[in-house]
Design a protein around this nucleic acid. Structure first.
Lengths: 162, 162
DNA sequence: TCTGAAAGTTTTCATCC
DNA sequence: GGATGAAAACTTTCAGA
């Protein structure tokens, strides 16, 4: 049930920023950071979970330590955007572990896909299987990542201060 | 010190996959999943941290629950790629909270940048400040995300099974 | 060297104020 | 929102494979 108006105060915004930066801290530590008791922090965190705002906690690996790991950004244009095509296309990508991110975008391309594979051959094979074998894919541009300058999933929960 | 040969066995690969999917489980639960005692799991996890493979644990928010949140993918081409330009450009992006990801890529563009901002005006302002105001940026294409079909930072730690 | 089990410590979490 | 205390988890230690 993601249907809550979400009235976040200043402490909530700071807490969510801290949790997005490092969720591996005790309620006590988090409480000291935002000026709250551990139980108050727990209440708020439970609230985020219950409301669906806080989806999950995940481990982040240092990709440079994974042997042969290659990241690539694929820009895809499709022929027709019917619900069926879209559904089949996205389902396949969601099911593929080497597909890290998929964005349906507006503009010069239709999809931006980020791949994480082992060695260039695996990237080739994935691009072949996921995109080139798909008759509905009209155009594909693959950009190989030379350096993942900044990574993560953190989003600001309030507008930047004017 | 990220200088370890990293000899991961089958259990390590499974444990890392589980942790990347959901790091909010007890050592006991994780142990049952991979067939190890809680203490054995702890030892391995501590090892990943010490070796630098496991960077951190982060909270992932449901972006659809953040009011007015807009994601955008920016494709950037720069004029010259000197170390100084690169350094200044990347430092600014790293310091900007609305910049979620930055990839230095090879191919038709030089950088792929993912922005997370509040409302289209903030995206415009960011694009202006980060890219258009930079004399070294030659070309900029902004793709607005209509639907974040798949998100995350998970990477496979071993090649796909043949 | 890596495992599993048990003891000691800290954290989490429900309840009450 | 804070404080208490029971339950659970984590962390250390140790003996065995």
């Amino acid at each position: 049930m993601p249907g809550k108006p979400l009235a976040l105060d200043d402490i909530d915004h700071r807490l969510l920023a801290e949790l997005q930066a490092d969720a591996d801290r005790t309620l006590r530590d988090l409480g000291e950071l935002v000026g709250l008791s551990p139980s108050a922090v727990l209440r708020r965190v439970e609230g985020y979970k219950a409301g669906g705002l806080l989806e999950r906690k995940v481990a982040v690996l240092d990709t440079s330590q994974v042997p042969d790991l290659v990241l690539a950004v694929c820009l895809v244009t499709v022929e027709r955007q019917t619900p069926e095509h879209r559904r089949a296309f996205c389902d396949l990508l969601k099911r593929t572990p080497q597909v890290q991110q998929v964005y349906d975008v507006s503009g010069v391309w239709d999809y931006v896909v980020i791949l994480a594979a082992h060695g260039l051959p695996e990237v080739r094979e994935l691009a072949e299987r996921l995109f080139e074998a798909d008759e509905n894919v009209r155009k594909l541009t693959t950009l190989f990542v030379l350096d993942p300058v900044k990574t993560g999933c953190a989003v600001p929960t309030r507008p930047m201060e004017a």
